[in-house]
Design a protein around this nucleic acid. Sequence first.
DNA 1: CTTCTTGTACTAATAACATAATACAATATT
DNA 2: AATATTGTATTATGTTATTAGTACAAGAAG
Lengths: 135, 135
Amino acid sequence: MTAERYTEGLDFILDLTSGVPYYRQVIKQVEMAIADGRLRKGSKLPTVRSLAVHLQINPNTVARAYNEMEIRGIVNTQQGTGTFISDKKIDLSLEERANILDSLVRSFLANASAYGFVVEDIIGHLDTLKEDVKI
Amino acid sequence: MTAERYTEGLDFILDLTSGVPYYRQVIKQVEMAIADGRLRKGSKLPTVRSLAVHLQINPNTVARAYNEMEIRGIVNTQQGTGTFISDKKIDLSLEERANILDSLVRSFLANASAYGFVVEDIIGHLDTLKEDVKI
DNA sequence: CTTCTTGTACTAATAACATAATACAATATT
DNA sequence: AATATTGTATTATGTTATTAGTACAAGAAG
């Protein structure tokens, strides 16, 4: 399968029941893979057509995800070649960085609390995620 | 605020970035609250109008969530009175609970990675927050 | 009884999403 | 050079989600 040409350990899956649009799920999975180290600068993503076959969706839907990621600077795409993770650098001072992180985390904790989760739940789950990636 | 009339400790929050339809988020949050005991038979939910104001969405959207929950037997609603949790048991397995948490965490990580944060950053900050809360 | 509060119903409009189909342009391979 | 692979663009169609606005019916409160 041509999908083998992209980074090992990266497997796209769609959750058909979540109500989250498909293209968003693709974007989020790429972002996740970047966050936990499975994808890095220069890594090649599966082609539009192969990922569409893999996920059993229309190529245009994959193309939409890739296009949006390019607009956001997450990837570089080139006709005839493919799509690669960019080296997008986020220039923030340490202080700005800390402020944004704090804001993101607090917002997330609030949201999680609406479902009844507490900090320990989150930390436990993140530790588990991290262990999974290590294998 | 009229929302005070419903069960203490229950707070609805929408994640505008996850792509999950709003009405589904409301339903899921009610289900979680029932499963972990924050809501029980007879507990009153906020009115359609008050929750709509609280969440800054259209009342019809809340009404949709409430209507679907009534169809599924989760709540009983009565015009002129309000909406109450039914006596239907909702048992979420540990796995289902973990899936919900996983979905929340992944969506958050994807957002965070757009700012250049990685899992270790998040865990570190959560540990820090956890220490703060202890004090 | 009157007024207020509550959920219900309905219509119309808009935006977003996903698909199918097709064709073209740029790059890579043979 | 010819062919294959890759992303891009476009049009049209259908479905879903959300909103706004309005009105009605049922229950609660005064």
